[in-house]
């Protein structure tokens, strides 16, 4: 264009106008305001940890690390240990992952491929994400009144024919670690599905085309190219789901049976850290509150470890330019 080569006609055009004070202060003010918001979140987190830590100090000094390995929970004599709860938390979360990961990944693959037209897949994806919106107390009620009666014949069957496996070695009760694991699977399914699906959908289309053009079938393309390329997102979704499953409180308190025992059988009631806190906090004395908050601290640290692992894995496998 000719206009770009002509110099400014008058000095007015060339001069930069002086910035007015008000604009300068608005700009600065906005900067500090947003910074304050960002810091407030970080400070709140630190504050929560400190407060919990402070309240838990009596229990920490009294029980030390032995708290993690003791199986006694005796509010009468004020002797506490949470090994059964740690065990229950991990076992129920693992059951949830074993069920929800293949299912969620399968749904994610199905919805991200063009097996069905988008006017079918979009409502399905939406419905799965809506699952996450169901309050956990409602899911707990559903578990008690619908799922447990529904699962009972299945449990009986498993015990009768697979009872020689210690995992199914006891007479089935309704409330058990297995029940909780299955309900948790249901609760984390939307998380795994929606994040994995997003990951697969946002993979660059040239990866798929490249694989197909080399004579890969659809399944070879999915298994050898798309899933490895989206590995970080998929693992990230699984780790987030694991964190969610470990911290879930209401459904756990309603379904796990709250029995302070370690039993190898998944059909026996158990307890998780979150369910312990939820079920005992209301009528706890001062020492017991300290022990419960110590348990809460342990849970936070477990979740933190899971999240750090997730970050590391996501960073390590983040290998596709988006």
């Amino acid at each position: 264009m000719a206009a770009t080569s002509t110099p400014p006609e008058s000095p007015e055009v060339a001069m930069i106008r002086v910035r007015r004070n008000l604009r300068y202060y608005l700009d600065q003010g906005f900067y500090y305001l947003t910074m304050a918001f960002a810091l407030a979140i970080a400070i709140t987190l630190v504050w929560i940890v400190i407060q919990i830590g402070l309240t838990a100090i009596p229990a920490i000094t009294q029980f030390g690390l032995g708290f993690l390995t003791s199986t006694t929970w005796d509010p009468v004599q004020n002797i506490y240990g949470i090994l059964p709860q740690i065990y229950g938390t991990l076992v129920s979360a693992i059951i949830a992952l074993v069920v929800a990961v293949p299912l969620g990944l399968g749904i994610a693959i199905f919805l991200s491929e063009d097996f069905l037209p988008t006017y079918v897949t979009t409502p399905i994806a939406f419905a799965i994400e809506l699952l996450a919106a169901i309050p956990s107390v409602v899911i707990g009620l559903w578990g008690i009144f619908i799922l447990i009666p529904f699962l009972r014949p299945f449990y009986t069957f498993v015990h009768r024919y697979l009872g020689w496996i210690p995992l199914f070695g006891t007479e089935p009760r309704g409330n058990s670690l297995l029940t909780l694991g299955l309900v948790l699977a249901f609760m984390i399914l939307p998380l795994i599905t929606s994040i994995s699906r997003q990951t697969l959908v946002s993979l660059p289309p040239y990866l798929r085309q490249g694989a197909m053009a080399l004579g890969a079938t659809r399944w070879e393309t999915i298994l050898r190219v798309l899933i490895p390329a989206g590995f970080s997102g998929i693992v990230g979704s699984i780790m987030l789901a694991l964190g969610r499953a470990m911290g879930e409180t209401m459904a756990a308190a309603m379904l796990v049976g709250n029995s302070n025992r370690i039993n190898i059988s998944l059909l026996e009631p158990g307890s998780t850290i979150a369910s312990l806190i939820a079920s005992q906090f209301g009528e706890a004395g001062r020492d017991q509150v300290a022990a419960l908050l110590y348990a809460g601290l342990v849970l936070m640290i477990l979740s933190l470890i899971v999240n750090i692992l997730a970050e590391i894995i996501i960073k390590k496998f983040q290998n596709v330019e988006r």
Partner: peptide, 15 residues
């Protein structure tokens, strides 16, 4: 596609 290969506009190596 195994008999007839293809090279694309944008280089697209797999990660």
């Amino acid at each position: 596609r195994r008999r007839i290969g293809m090279v694309f506009q944008k280089p697209n190596p797999f990660p």
